[in-house]
């Protein structure tokens, strides 16, 4: 027994020594790697500066046809990506790496420097402007309407929403804030706001059909997109209630990039490329909404 424990002790020592060695080697090789990586990144930046090309990571969504989605070949497609590719062509000093992202992840990633430009019809708000840099040039224009199920003929305007349930998608969204403000100003209408997470999910659309929700506050392009893909499930009512602009969003200290991209957007608007892209992706909107 004693011998056994003695043996155990030497083995313990041996194992400890071995582990220390392994850790040491791992640590050293790790340092080697980091040094190498450092050199590599230095090389990259040096290359970048000698060629004068800076790499820029551009992100938009992947689930929002026709703004930003993935086509059947797995390519990022839609207005946002087409516009970004055109901006990239104009700017020789920048090379865009275009990636898809989740909405929940996008602004955080801009803040943490994982991406440089976020684009997904992002609207200005005081809280966002405190944290992010917005482009001066407008990227997308959306007209917001009162939207109801296609079979609903009772609702003609916001005043008709007595004791109604409306879906604001999620609490931090522009549309939710619209309902919040409206219901505060019109307490007599007793509007109940829910946040279903995604008012355009199957369940959200079904809720509008069977009357468990009454109305949405939605933009022309999104409503037309739903009609295009699902058939006539929705309709817009009356005149647009608001016009909202989408902007590119940057990290606070990325003014140089912002200026350059603003210049490029201006150029694309002047030479007609922007309009061509807008027509390419959004020309169906008026047609869809009028034939409701």
């Amino acid at each position: 027994m004693k011998k056994f424990f003695g043996k155990m002790k030497t083995i313990k020592k041996g194992v400890a020594l071995y582990l220390a060695m392994v850790c040491g080697i791992a640590f050293l090789s790790g340092c080697g790697n980091t040094a190498k990586e450092k050199a590599a990144t230095n090389d990259n930046t040096q290359n970048a500066t000698t060629k004068g090309v800076t790499k820029v990571k551009f992100a938009s969504g992947t689930i929002n046809w026709p703004f930003c989605f993935m086509d059947e070949n797995g390519e990022l497609s839609g207005f946002e990506y087409d516009l970004a590719r055109e901006v990239d062509k104009v700017l020789d000093q920048y090379e865009f790496e275009i990636v898809g992202s989740e909405w929940e992840d996008m602004l955080t990633s801009v803040k943490l420097g994982k991406i440089d430009i976020a684009a997904w019809t992002i609207k200005r708000s005081p809280e966002r402007e405190e944290n992010f840099l917005f482009s001066d040039e407008v990227e997308t224009v959306q007209k917001f309407y009162l939207t109801v199920g296609a079979n609903n003929n009772d609702i003609k305007s916001l005043e008709d929403l007595q004791d109604a349930t409306v879906d604001g998608s999620s609490t931090e969204e522009y549309i939710y804030k619209f309902w919040e403000k409206y219901s505060k100003e019109h307490p007599e209408q007793n509007i109940n706001i829910i946040a279903s997470g995604n008012c355009f999910s199957d369940a959200g659309i079904e809720a509008l059909q069977n009357g468990s929700t009454t109305a949405l506050f939605m933009d022309d392009i999104s409503v037309a997109g739903q009609i295009e893909k699902r058939g006539k499930v929705l309709k817009v009512v009356g005149e647009p209630l608001a016009e909202e602009y989408g902007y590119y969003v940057y990290n606070k200290d990325n003014t140089e990039l912002k200026e350059a991209v603003d210049g490029a957007l201006k150029e694309l608007k002047e030479n007609g490329v922007y309009d061509r892209l807008y027509d390419k992706w959004f020309s169906f909107v008026d047609e869809s909404l009028e034939t409701k």
């Binding site: 992947t62 689930i63 046809w65 989605f69 992840d105 739903q226 893909k229 699902r230």
Partner: peptide, 24 residues
Amino acid sequence: TFMIGAMDLIGRANTVGGATMHYI
């Protein structure tokens, strides 16, 4: 992985749903 928007099986399923409005 869909939490961070990585593109694998579930990520692609999200995008197919988004492009066709058919998630099921």
